[in-house]
Amino acid sequence: MSELLKIDNISVSYGNISALKGVSMSVQEGEIVSLIGANGAGKSTLLKSIVGLEPLKEGSISFRGEVLGQAKGGHYKGVPTNLLVRKGVALVPEGRRVFADLTIEENLDMGAFMVREDSVVQQRKEEMYEFFPILGNRRKQKSRSLSGGEQQMLAVARALMSNPTLLLLDEPGLGLAPLIVQDIFNKLAIINRENKVTIFIVEQNARLALKSSDMGYVMENGRIVLADKAKALLKNAQVRAAYLGE
């Protein structure tokens, strides 16, 4: 196993408020890694800085040894968000952000925007319809007609259309019933196992996220306070008290 994503001592701030303070972490190829933490801990900021939506103040982020973003002498230089797909990084953004006025099929087409061969796109769509039957049955419907959970599935399927090496998910369980979140995590586990997609999840639902992950990181106030095997974190007294409500 090799290191796929390396986050090296990054800091990000919004004006005078620093959101991330020297965060370092790494995602190994083939793993599911989750980052848990409370509201405002800086989880989403971390994900945004990975995809180049937030400039770094310090530190660097690299993917397969290639620098995605770097702050040098106070200047940030990073790969623009739209070029990440070509490198094999796909993002499922927070709040799903499906194209509401487009149909499910069109949403999937958009996910494969960088794929030029129609036959490949067609084949991947079929795979997605098979994997998410609910999408297959309603492919001609506008995605605004889908429920929150179905939209989340669509957002995941759309991201997978680019055939990524690394799939980033920003709070896939946001505003969804625990049963549906469980369902989504099960699907992610299958994707990870069978398609060999490395997955990095940022999530508030600590129990579900850790249960389906290999590694876990806990973030508080812009710092990583715990990093361990997910199974170990589930048993950790601190985590149990703060995030699992025990």
Partner: peptide, 24 residues
Amino acid sequence: SRMGRALEAVREDEIAASSMGINI
């Protein structure tokens, strides 16, 4: 065309569009 699709995606959601690889 492909460009038309990109334009529509940009209109619908810029963040989602750029994470699909579209140069907004």
